[in-house]
């Protein structure tokens, strides 16, 4: 009883503690203690691609190589399907995700375009940036996204 009670209080307190004042920035996934824990294994997989030998192993059999990491099945399938936005939602950080798009020998704009709302091709993303980038006005908070 006491244990349960303490645990409940702990979780309540912990939940409030886990809120961040940047949580209302739309479409944004900073690496903090929450993503750290959710994404630890997927990020360590991604980072392993810094090593040429690991890249060779991954190239040889992607599923078998992924199975050597304690990732969730959702994380593994997002890697196999190259669903980059889902990877971020599952705890990967974009600096780590770079290793995967680099592994594919694709320019990062391919990954950026795939994550963008709305989804953009390489050329469309490139053009958005040449035209001055995504404007900050209207993109500061989730409230603005709800309106628009």
């Amino acid at each position: 009883m006491i244990l349960t009670d303490l645990r409940g209080r702990y979780q309540f307190g912990f939940g409030r503690f886990m809120e961040r004042d940047y949580d209302d920035i739309p479409g944004t996934y900073p690496l903090d203690s929450r993503t750290y824990r959710k994404g630890y294994h997927v990020n360590m997989f991604l980072m392993s691609l810094n090593d040429a030998e690991c890249r060779d192993k991954f190239a040889e059999d992607e599923q078998a190589y992924l199975d050597t990491f304690r990732m969730t099945e959702d994380q593994k399938s997002a890697v196999l399907d190259r669903r980059f936005l889902d990877l971020l939602k599952l705890g990967a950080n974009v600096y780590y995700a770079f290793k995967l798009i680099s592994f594919d020998r694709q320019p990062p704009q391919v990954m950026y375009g795939q994550m963008a709302e709305p989804r953009l091709t390489f050329d469309e993303f490139q053009q958005m940036m040449i035209d001055g980038g995504r404007p900050i006005d209207g993109n500061r908070s989730v409230e603005e996204w709800k309106d628009g």
């Binding site: 996934y29 974009v94 980038g133 995504r134």
Partner: peptide, 15 residues
């Protein structure tokens, strides 16, 4: 200014 991840990727703020 730059954002590389998420749906808001590509945001910049010259001002």
């Amino acid at each position: 200014s730059h954002q590389l991840g998420g749906e808001r990727v590509g945001v910049v703020n010259p001002e």
